[in-house]
Design a protein around this nucleic acid. Structure first.
Length: 277
DNA sequence: TTCCAGGCAGTAG
DNA sequence: CTACTGCATGGA
């Protein structure tokens, strides 16, 4: 769905009309966006997309100040400058988090790739194929067996199709969800969806809605990271996790993101002097 | 072989 | 309310 080379990324987008392949170049101070095929959507549309995707205007100074207060968290400061990558499309975010439930990330990526390549609209440019995430209306018509063959479980196949139906029928949309306002109300609403539990609701809210205080309780990776950094006594201790995060009001989501990055760096022996992003 | 992955719904008590 | 179980695959 997106292709990164050096300081630029290509991605197929649509504002409801014909899909357009765009290329975004980051200079460090600004994004330069151009259409490689077709016509670039309105400036407002592009600005909004970049906002939701890269969160460029977030002032993280306060967050780093909080990290500095705890010695055990100093290793997270090596990610200074990283802003959380979002998933602007709510349908995609929900599907992705359902797909990723309970399985390793590597496997989850494989499944998502198969899903996108089988059911997403695509466009070829310079001999490479670029995909949009599958549209709800199309997914709504699938039979669970079509998703099972991509290695989703029967349950997950039902969840994904069910979510697609909610979107294609119009009973669920990002606009409607945002209109609820308070994070608690949104979380409550998401939890009524079959296949969406606490983990998925929080993951979706942080990635698609940019809610700032989301903690995906129960997350295996998160628990591991906190245990390694000596922030919780045992790997599974919901209360300890909650207490830990309460020290970071307004930054819980970012802290989760940084902890996930920290986990990726294996044993934490990354060179602290490596260049910053 | 067993255990665990960026969980959830359904059921029993 | 909490505790338990089946789901399904793949890597360690």
């Amino acid at each position: 769905m997106h292709e990164v080379t050096g300081d630029r990324v290509r991605r197929l987008i649509t504002d409801g009309g014909k899909p357009v392949l765009i290329e975004i170049l980051s200079t460090g101070n600004e994004f330069l966006v151009k259409a490689l095929t077709g016509k670039l959507p309105a400036q407002k549309f592009i600005e909004h997309l970049l906002d939701e995707w890269f969160d460029p205007f977030r002032d993280t100074a306060q967050f780093y100040k909080l990290l500095k207060k705890d010695k055990d968290l100093h290793s997270l400061l090596r990610y200074t400058g990283f802003h959380m990558v979002g998933i602007p499309d709510l349908f995609e975010a929900l599907c992705w988090s359902v797909i990723g439930q309970q399985i390793s990330l590597a496997f989850a990526y494989q499944v998502k790739r198969r899903f996108v390549e089988n059911f997403g609209n695509s466009l070829e440019f310079q001999k490479r194929k670029y995909y949009l995430f599958p549209q709800p209306a199309q997914v709504a018509m699938l039979h669970p067996d079509q998703l099972r063959s991509l290695k989703l479980t029967q349950r997950k196949a039902e969840y994904v199709i069910g979510i697609a139906r909610l979107f294609s029928s119009g009973s669920l949309s990002k606009e409607k969800i945002l209109k609820l306002g308070a994070e608690d109300l949104i979380r409550e609403e998401l939890l009524t969806i079959r296949g969406v539990g606490e983990w998925t609701a929080n993951y979706t809210m942080m990635k698609a809605l940019r809610a700032m205080d989301c903690v995906p309780f129960g997350d295996a990776g998160l628990n591991n990271a906190l245990f390694r950094l000596k922030q919780i006594p045992k790997k599974e201790n919901r209360t300890a996790v909650a207490i830990f995060f309460n020290n970071f009001p307004g930054w819980k989501t970012y802290l989760v993101y940084y902890l996930w990055m920290r986990l990726r760096d294996k044993n934490g022996d990354m060179d602290l002097n490596s260049p910053k992003p």
